[in-house]
């Protein structure tokens, strides 16, 4: 088997076996659906929803992507500021760490009271959940710039701004993408939390509402959908990295 084939076949085989065993266990031990739905029940739950499932999924995807985008717009510049200016770093870093330490699930209901029950609040919640890894990754990347590169920029007469744009930020790109990969999966969690506390649409809302009616297969189908969205977005970030910033991916092709 070629390495490329192995990469696909092995995980798929494991996955299929896992599903089969699960199904088998559910049938043989007659596990009640409300305790642990079998894969077939979950499939049935999803089918029962039909296109409605995708409608809700789109709503959630929208919240995730917009919120994640806001987090990038906040996190990357903040990471740059914190890493470049020592005073700003000393002034704001502890505060930012403190805000990040607040459990987002705990303040989500409060945020709903403050900002109202609409999309804005959901976006704020998603942004708050995922800006931190993006900011920290950006700052680490900026500070990781080799001193010789900074010396080069300085002798060439670069201002701080030019230095950031031509040396520090490009060097930080691979770091930033590590932050984005973490950030995008956290954004999914943020969106679900936002929909738990404030929504009449979306997968998070569907999970709470169907659980309340003991429609466990439906709820589980939503969870599976969320996982699929998470994987898809993670891969999308990877594709953007490879497609537009291929130079920043380190290869082991010698010196």
């Amino acid at each position: 088997m070629s390495p490329a084939v192995r990469k696909v076949v092995l995980p798929v085989a494991t996955f299929v076996t896992f599903i089969a065993l699960w199904q088998l266990a559910s049938v043989t031990f007659e596990i009640p659906v409300y305790l642990m739905p079998a894969p077939s029940d979950i499939w049935g739950g999803g089918q029962g929803l039909g296109l409605v499932l995708f409608d809700h999924a789109l709503q959630t995807l929208n919240t995730i992507v917009l919120g994640f985008f806001c987090a990038c717009c906040v996190g990357i510049p903040l990471g740059v500021l914190v890493s470049v200016n020592r005073t700003i770093s000393e002034m704001f870093y502890p505060l930012i760490v403190f805000f990040n330490a607040i459990p987002i699930i705990a303040i989500a209901p409060i945020l709903v009271v403050i900002f109202g029950t609409d999309e804005t609040t959901r976006l704020i919640i998603v942004t708050l959940t995922c800006f931190f890894p993006i900011m920290v990754a950006t700052a680490s990347g900026m500070m990781d710039t080799p001193s010789e590169m900074l010396d080069l920029a300085r002798v060439a007469g670069a201002s701080t701004m030019v230095e950031i744009l031509t040396v520090r930020l490009p060097h930080a790109v691979s770091f930033i993408f590590s932050g984005l990969r973490i950030g995008v999966t956290v954004a999914v969690i943020g969106a679900v939390v936002a929909e738990f506390v404030n929504a009449n649409k979306g997968l998070g809302y569907l999970v709470t509402s169907s659980t309340a009616q003991f429609a466990i297969p439906t709820a589980t189908a939503c969870v599976v959908m969320l996982a699929l969205i998470s994987v898809l977005l993670y891969q999308a970030v990877n594709w953007i990295h490879r497609g537009f910033f291929a130079w920043s991916i380190k290869t082991d092709a010698g010196d």
Binding site: E148, M149, D151, L152, V155, G157, V167, P170, W247
Partner: peptide, 18 residues
């Protein structure tokens, strides 16, 4: 005035990899 007056060569090439 930048490299137009004094230019520098470091021990390592320090080329921008991107």
């Amino acid at each position: 005035q930048g490299f137009s007056e004094v230019a520098i060569v470091f021990q390592r090439p320090t080329l921008l990899p991107w």
